[in-house]
Write a protein that binds this DNA or RNA. Structure first.
Lengths: 292, 292
DNA sequence: CGAATCATGCAAAGACCATTGCGAATGGGC
DNA sequence: GCCCATTCGCAATGGTCTTTGCATGATTCG
């Protein structure tokens, strides 16, 4: 990007990379350092190692490969750079005027999230997380553009070790899935803006089968509220015509985070298994040693 | 509240002081915490003790007097507060302390978005939006949990009247799609945390075919940067193990908003057409009347 | 195809850090 | 003026974190 402040942290870090390039695992560590500066500057080497999927020793060695005495020395530098990148931006934020549609959109999302942060009752999320954790399986129904939220929720919840599936493939699949629901299951209906008929139907049907039903929506629709045990209200007003997914995703993220905290051992094991699988399938791109 | 950031940090800290007041040495410690937040959030208890001219034990006891289990617990809170005070800017961190995992996740997303809002160069989004608007078609490549971002982007962009498709169905489909790309097309690669091999490959292949390539990522990997005309950097640090999608979604949202502004007439017509179609298919749940 | 080099995980060692029990000193109350 | 309560420093203890030696598995070059 054109702004020098953005680059300070990353560029400085990457400039430390020796000519020879970095070993694969060291590159993985570097990626974590760049992408998670907060954690990098506060966390321990062990924490970073877990995040990078490497051994603790590799973190220390990476720090040494970057020209530092060890991890603490590197971390001290990271702190300084990270903090200055934060406070430097502070100044620039002021004179960011009304600006382009994109920046207006961002600002609105920021506001929405602030509102959400203030209003949201965390007890509700806790209830839902515990329900999902206890459920035989969980079905997420999400239609339209909010299918993305449903997918994200299901994906990460599975990563956390819970059988959560998103249904976005249309009414026939939805019907089949709902038909198999029972009292041991949980259904999460995600619907914004205007409610989709099929989502509402599914929620009611599931409720009548004894399934625990939760809803995530932007408008307190009586139709959905009647079917749901709890309704999470999320601001979804977008700058343009489309509703904003940002707040919805944030809630999904919060829910999964809460879910991961219900049974840390289970989640840890699940993530570990997933990592092993990724490695086996060679899915991840570890940076090549000499940057071509 | 003219200076919300200073207030947030010290006011919160001072509010923790018990009724009974503080012992002289404890007050000295508190003064150091307030006046040197940076050192307080990073340093050890011993360092703080020296600064306050007290013994190490007093630091620990002060932390306990403030209602925390010990120094590490207090420090963790200080970090969150201090960083927020640096990054939050217009958004005052309203919510109370550590709280549940879910509320921590929300607060972190809020911070990320604030950072994003400040750092993001809107010119880049404008460039991408115009490229998409001018393209014959646009392909969004997104893997893993970030498939959700890709889907949201593609969905809303289509709604805005542009031929944007997300590829999330695996490598074979990706290969087919990339094979059909040409200089009139645009490819947007979305990849976070660790890059997926296939995403990087697709970006390089597309680039060599003359397709305009853009990237949305949390770590400026040389592998992706080399293939991309512009790289949009997004904070994706999550509270738990998973990366947060929130900032990514916000960028997607901003991009679509910008796209919708390129040719308002086209977008308007497209949305109208979509509405008519929904009505014809009876997809929407218009208002109450609980079924059954 | 074999050997050497290198990277990386494992585990032990060493250092550092936070906490708490104990004792000394100080200040207030009787 | 004496005694008791409170505060704070000292030092020991238990735990955590970083580093490094060693072994193993992978990769490359001959």
């Amino acid at each position: 990007m054109t702004e020098p402040r953005t680059d300070t942290y990353d560029e400085w870090l990457r400039a430390r990379v020796p000519e020879r390039g970095l070993r694969p695992k060291a590159a993985a560590v570097l990626d974590v350092l760049v992408s998670q500066p907060r954690r990098a500057s506060y966390g321990s080497a062990a924490e970073l190692a877990q995040l990078a999927g490497v051994n603790v020793a590799t973190v220390t060695r990476t720090a040494q490969a970057l020209g530092f005495a060890g991890w603490p020395a590197l971390q001290q530098e990271l702190r300084a750079r990270y903090l200055s990148s934060l406070s430097a931006g502070q100044v620039a934020a002021e004179h960011a005027g009304a600006g382009s549609p994109s920046s207006r959109s961002l600002r609105r999302d920021l506001d929405s999230l602030a509102v959400l942060n203030r209003r949201l009752d965390e007890a509700v999320l806790l209830t839902i997380a515990e329900a999902v954790a206890a459920a035989r399986r969980t079905v997420v129904v999400a239609d339209g553009s909010y299918a993305a939220v449903g997918l994200a929720l299901a994906h990460n919840a599975r990563l956390a070790g819970y059988p959560v599936a998103a249904v976005t493939a249309g009414d026939s699949e939805l019907a089949n899935v709902v038909a198999a629901l029972g009292p041991e299951d949980v259904l999460i209906a995600i619907s914004f803006w205007r409610l989709y008929e099929s989502t509402v139907l599914a929620a009611h049907e599931a409720r009548s089968r004894g399934t625990r039903v939760f809803a995530l929506t932007d408008a307190a629709s009586p139709a959905l509220a009647a079917a749901a045990e709890e309704v999470v209200m999320v601001p979804a007003e977008g700058e343009a015509f489309f509703p904003s997914l940002t707040a919805g995703i944030a809630v999904a993220q919060a829910l999964v985070t809460q879910l991961a905290a219900v049974d840390p051992a289970r989640t840890g094991a699940s993530i570990e298994a997933a990592e092993a699988m990724w490695a086996k399938f060679g899915l991840l791109h570890r940076r090549p040693a000499p940057p071509s």
